[in-house]
Design a protein around this nucleic acid. Sequence first.
DNA 1: ATAATTAAGGATATTTTTGTCCTTAATTAA
DNA 2: TTAATTAAGGACAAAAATATCCTTAATTAT
Lengths: 150, 150
Amino acid sequence: MSYNKGEMFSKTCKYAINAMIYVPGSSSEKERTNLKEISKAIVSPEAFTAKILQVLVKNKLLISVKGPHGGFSMNGDPSKIFLSWIVDAIDGDMLFTGCALGLKKCAEEHPCAVHYKFKAIREHLTGMLHSTSLTDMADRVNNGISFLKH
Amino acid sequence: MSYNKGEMFSKTCKYAINAMIYVPGSSSEKERTNLKEISKAIVSPEAFTAKILQVLVKNKLLISVKGPHGGFSMNGDPSKIFLSWIVDAIDGDMLFTGCALGLKKCAEEHPCAVHYKFKAIREHLTGMLHSTSLTDMADRVNNGISFLKH
DNA sequence: ATAATTAAGGATATTTTTGTCCTTAATTAA
DNA sequence: TTAATTAAGGACAAAAATATCCTTAATTAT
């Protein structure tokens, strides 16, 4: 058996986050990148990345344009687009609201065995996800401090 | 598309944790429970739970005995068995060491875009997992404060 | 010894996640 | 208007996680 899951984000979500970081900032139609460039930059399967980008477009995090010179650009100011939005668009809100031990109705009146201990962790985590913007992340990458692949 | 993953633990691991909590404490051979009781108590598929218990036995978290009145008991003092051990046995150490954004070599010299932000979360989380013992969790359940199902 | 009980473990099945392929739609350039 | 480029989206495929079934092994009681 190889139970090797238990990560914060799905693989799909990881691709989505790195892809979003790579898409040039600004809602002006000037800067744009395309599928091929994105999947090369983040080292992801092209066809699969296409599906992920579709979801991000449907969730209004990205704008897409077809045809030559088409591609993807930010929908709005990337300093006002937060990590939590991407996670929520791809993985849903389980990370924010789900029970750590899988109870259907885990709550103050009917808590799982780690409810309170996890509450603190979750607040820490969601606080960070809500306060980390795309520019926070993209700046690090553009400055060569952080990386999107390997 | 229904990308609804992104949880701390795999489903398998959640079963494992709740199962461990249900197994009576003490390394003495007095108290023991069996597969049927466990999967009823935590509402899990019996055959699948059997596989999980096997892994826990192999990882020396539980002791198993076959035959009538056989079953499962703790291997050691449950106040010295920690949540992190169960998570590690089932999900591996990705939650503790893996990169949040999936980079193969995410480290101080080659960090992903959220490396430092996640470092704090991870330390918080692993600190909690390392310090939460089975008795911490089981006591709550035995006192009717916390629950293993629904 | 025999039957009953319970875990171990191999094989297989189902579901979910991840990934591919191909056709269509939209846009641009020549 | 035609060809080229790029995203959208349906259908399908592969891999991983979750789940079931059945046989074997160990133990206990009769």
